[in-house]
Amino acid sequence: MEIVERIREEARKALEEKKVELIIGFEEGSLPLRTTPAFIKSIDAVERLIWNATCENNLANYLLRLKIKGKVGIVAKGCDARSIINAIKERQIERDMVFIIGVPCTGMVDRKGIKERFDEAEILEAIEVNGQIKVKGERFEGSFNISDFLYDSCKTCTQKTPSLYDVIVGDEVKEREDVDEFREIREFEKKSPDERWAYFTREIESCIRCYACRNVCPLCYCKECFIDQSRPQWFGRSIDESDRMIFHIIRVFHTAGRCVDCGACERACPMGIDLRKLTKKVEKDVVELYNYKAGIDLETVPPLATYKEDDPQEFIK
């Protein structure tokens, strides 16, 4: 049976048995290569659920932001499941209030790459068949391997199969062990501080402070974000270089030991800022210093909530 059918079946069963009040999944978007989150409450609507290589959104975000009473079902990829684990660990949701339909994921398609292929011409139709995407426009047609157009975060993914689920649909995907997910960061670190500063000022120059990166992030659930605080107002909301830079520094600091590299921030950014250059660095530090990866299990204590007596401290005089 296809994954889509199995998702629908599980969703239908859960709703019929009144196990859940609501199922959060994906439905067809209004544009080709787009899907949109679906909130299914009735059994008739289950047919709207779909699954393909454009189900890129991190649905864990909705668990934290929607105030839903009762148990919620959620369709979760590897990264979504990691975010859910995070949320459970941080006591934002309870484990028995969420019903996870795990979907082993083979990576999501980066539309931008495909659009570039056709010189940004409008794609009118896209169909996915057996790991390939057939794209049609007014004057062009083509078909691509999905694996050639994955998001950067999907290319370095090490947790394709959800690590936490109530039911799993589809076969486990083999995790890649040959990827060095921090290779890019290591290379970037070799540059001089001046070069790095120049790179980030150039990137952040285009930040319009829409806070899309924050709003889409399943970690940013604070009722009042530090940047919205007015008493005291720690940092300005202007587009001054330092204000913009500081917003990003602190945002990334707050992801330390929590970021699961779902890539949602970078996808949400309307200005195309290289946000993963920052988040990935902190992820790397946490792995190297404290041997911790976010969202793998429910037991390990998050790195900034604990300590060891012999933690590295060469930099302290």
Partner: peptide
């Protein structure tokens, strides 16, 4: 440790 690493990383 994390903060110092971020600050030095951005330059």
């Amino acid at each position: 440790t994390i903060l110092k690493n971020i600050l030095e990383y951005i330059g």
